[in-house]
């Protein structure tokens, strides 16, 4: 298998202050980390070569994650443990590589395999557990939830209820876990869920008041 590409799936956390870094800046941060750590990254051909790197899904500014994924192509075989260490020696606080594995033959890249994602939403202390339970129950019994999506083509009414697969109350803190559609086929953002819950609670939603953390990304065959 001489022509087989050496693509590695890098799983990382983006927490703390790094939640304020947007997707394009994150790409630059990864490229520079690869250069500093002198890993044998593969470059694209052409006039303006760039590292061959593809992220599963951009994370909204203000959202943390412990389950981000980027696929990177290298020119040599890597020792996975060593690679984790090299990354973490040079990453800014709040970015941490937790796993590196080589993609198996024929395995689709992360962006193409993505179908859903799980999130944790932590609510302000003013919200009671019973209030939150009631809100969740209401959402789960709805047959449809219509929201308005604004795009270049104009406003569009969308039923997001089928995109919500799980919604569970956590014991501590005042928080819920949710599993929702994510990816090119059908996509729901976590802050929309936060907004829907806030609406049921009768409070206005302010970004940052509900702390959102992405937990994991899933494909058709389970965790990516």
């Amino acid at each position: 298998m001489e022509n087989e590409k050496l693509i590695y799936r890098i799983k990382f956390e983006k927490t703390g202050a790094m939640k304020f870094i947007g997707h394009l800046d994150l790409l630059k941060i990864f490229q520079r980390a690869v250069k500093r750590s002198v890993l044998p990254v593969a470059y694209s051909q052409g006039f303006n070569p760039h590292q061959i790197m593809s992220f599963a899904l951009p994370l909204s500014v203000g959202v943390e994650s412990i389950g981000e994924i980027v696929d990177v192509e290298f020119t040599n075989i890597l020792d996975c443990c060593d690679t984790i260490e090299k990354f973490n020696l040079t990453m800014p606080n709040g970015l941490k590589v937790v796993n590196v594995r080589r993609l198996t033959t024929g395995e689709k890249n992360a962006a193409a395999s993505l179908s859903s994602a799980s999130y944790e939403l932590v609510f302000p202390e003013t919200i009671t557990k019973s209030g939150l339970r009631k809100a969740i129950d209401e959402i789960l019994t709805e047959s449809q939830i219509i929201i308005t999506r604004t795009s270049k083509k104009g406003d569009k009414q969308v039923d997001v209820r089928p995109m919500i697969h799980e919604l569970t109350l956590l014991e501590f803190p005042v928080a819920v876990n949710t599993l929702i559609d994510t990816g090119s086929a059908s996509n729901l953002k976590a802050d929309v869920i936060a907004e829907i819950i806030c609406e049921k609670l009768g409070i206005s939603y302010t970004p940052g008041d509900v702390r959102i953390k992405r937990l994991a990304l899933f494909g058709e065959n389970g965790s990516l």
Binding site: A17, M18, I29, T90, M91
Partner: peptide, 14 residues
């Protein structure tokens, strides 16, 4: 999150 570029104020650079 109310400001346009919060990353201007967080430090934490390499």
């Amino acid at each position: 999150l109310k400001v346009e570029k919060p990353a201007r104020y967080i430090g934490n650079e390499v």
